[in-house]
Design a protein around this nucleic acid. Sequence first.
DNA 1: TAACTGTACTATTAGTGATGGTACACTTAG
DNA 2: CTAAGTGTACCATCACTAATAGTACAGTTA
Lengths: 117, 117
Amino acid sequence: MIIIDYKDTKPIYEQIVERYKTLILKGAIQADEQLPSVRNLAMELSINPNTIQKAYAELERQGFIYTVKGRGNFVSGDSGLIDKRKSEYLEQILTLVREVLEIGMSKAELIREIEVL
Amino acid sequence: MIIIDYKDTKPIYEQIVERYKTLILKGAIQADEQLPSVRNLAMELSINPNTIQKAYAELERQGFIYTVKGRGNFVSGDSGLIDKRKSEYLEQILTLVREVLEIGMSKAELIREIEVL
DNA sequence: TAACTGTACTATTAGTGATGGTACACTTAG
DNA sequence: CTAAGTGTACCATCACTAATAGTACAGTTA
């Protein structure tokens, strides 16, 4: 479910955060479903438990999961998250689009590329 | 011409590289035109000459400028760079687009946002 | 009680970005 | 030729972040 790309310049904990955000928003993990424990996931990915802990803390901070001490981490049921996440993506995309338009790519060409995805 | 954003998480030398790439591809700096010297630009931006050196070395590596020892750095006349750069942007954009489609945004909505730019 | 959970520490290592400083080779204007 | 300006190659250092390693403690549950 989680794959770490060591060639990626993004830190491991951030890759985990991104991956879970997508899984949750796609509905691949249901609300109130339990995530792997910090120690288990660390074992499975062969990385340090502290790194998982950092990822989970960030996911909780952003409202994607909630934590119950002694029990585990669970997917949050917050429905507003999808819209927030879409806005984040949209902003990133539009920033890049503005830059590529600046150096001469046409909107038409860009839209064509998106259409064929 | 060059502005450094210290709030940006991207390193300074990378911001300089990106900025010059855009300026060159937009034609804001002509082919064979001279860039500020390492020491001058460092003074102007109040940063270390080594940081400028790193940015210029990267721009040369990517073919955007060429260097003449003792004389300075000059804009390259390579016309293939624009297409290469467009492809870079396009790949980044399409990666993000795929992800936002995965969490349920529609192509139509996305295209509408681009249209109104 | 034992085996899980999360959490909070501290210490350490490794890598990167940036700075400060020195030195050297080349080019050009005077 | 000289001086001032170019790029370039170092080295040492600092600061920050990511990641690791290990320990300890508190809550939950079979």
